[in-house]
Amino acid sequence: MASQVVNLRVNERSREFLAAPGTPLLSSLRDALGLMAAKRGCAQGSCGTCTVLLDGRPVMSCLVAVETVDGASVRTLEGVARGGDLDEVQSAFLEGFATQCGFCTAGMIMTAEALLDRNPDPTRAEVVEAISGNVCRCTGYGPIVDAILDAAARRRKEDAAARRKEDIAARWGTADIAATPGTADAAARRRS
């Protein structure tokens, strides 16, 4: 069968490329779009290293035939940090020593992003369940679970601060946003 044109919105940019039928989304991201953060650990949905967000939901991109998601929105690890600022999950992984070899990290972070987007205050058990499809061979998982819980706490705190500022801004027509760079911005971005 002939290749066909596929359109995706990837990390908030429209991308158009050719793909042969059955090409995994993972291969399109890596080979056609040069987005290398998602990794190929097994190519059969058993390791989670290729996890990306498809219309906000975490999927193993090695299992998704790209032509079946034409028009969808995709978010990869490359689209998480903005303007060089790490987001809360990235910061928590970095500062929490939740990475060793780094090969599972992209999938872990994207799984965590999806969890925190739908559940800002997860229990430890909910974090454990969320990452149950992601294999890590180095860390023993503990630091990863801790980092995701830490990220959730950071994000809640940041969102609360942003809401406070928006509240002030709405009431007084101004707020000293410069004092806490990026915070209101980040919260607004996620809600959009």
């Binding site: 059969q44 058993s46 390791c47 454990v128 990452i131 149950s132 294999v135």
Partner: peptide, 17 residues
Amino acid sequence: RDFTEYLMPGAADIPAY
């Protein structure tokens, strides 16, 4: 042949260290 058959403890199985 893969991680669904080669079993390893998950995050739910870790003890208190």
